[in-house]
């Protein structure tokens, strides 16, 4: 279940997203829900190895949350992405994003020094660095592109995200 505080603030969240173009919701899920999500994500992921675009693992992921649907206005299809040591996602024509709303949910706690953090960019090149905090949901409207920083040798584990998007 979504953090009840956010459920009570639904209208405020919608207006911040509309006004600012993004919102970050820390402690988004309640403990049990997060645990369940992480348990479900243990299914094997398919490795993507396109060195000019990215090296990571991904798999489809079914997650339907009525609260998010209300915030975004549509149902969001999700995929799970895993970044291990040496993995990355580069910005290029292939990672340009179509106009729409994008959501990124952190399943794991990370530290920025080891890479593996996600960055969204808008049309003017402004960066929004997604916090590496577990159980944080970032929603961004109409980013132009995104990337995931190379996971370097200081990394101690995988960085797992759920990535959702819906067209305008």
């Amino acid at each position: 279940m979504v953090n009840p505080w956010y459920v009570r603030k639904e209208q405020e969240i919608k207006s911040v997203l509309e006004r600012e173009g993004f919102i970050i919701l820390f402690d988004f899920l309640e403990k049990e829900e997060l645990k369940e999500l992480k348990r479900r994500k243990k299914s094997p992921a398919k490795k993507v190895n396109k060195v000019l675009q990215g090296v990571y693992a991904e798999s489809s992921f079914s997650w339907h949350d009525g609260f998010l649907q209300k915030i975004v206005g549509r149902r969001i299809p999700w995929k799970a992405m895993e970044f291990s040591r040496g993995d990355y996602l580069i910005r290029n024509d292939h990672t340009s994003l179509k106009k729409g709303t994008y959501a990124l949910f952190n399943l794991d706690e990370g530290d920025d020094i080891s890479g593996g953090y996600a960055v969204f960019l808008d049309a003017e090149g402004n960066h929004l660095r997604v916090p590496s905090t577990k159980n944080a949901l970032t929603i961004v409207k109409n980013p132009k592109s995104w990337y995931v920083k190379y996971v370097n040798c200081l990394s101690r584990g995988k960085r797992r995200f759920l990535m959702g998007s819906t067209r305008n």
């Binding site: 000019l52 990355y88 580069i90 020094i113 080891s114 190379y150 370097n152 040798c153």
Partner: peptide, 10 residues
């Protein structure tokens, strides 16, 4: 320096 890198490009 440690952890510095340059990813594949042409």
């Amino acid at each position: 320096r440690k952890t510095n890198h340059l990813l594949p490009h042409d």
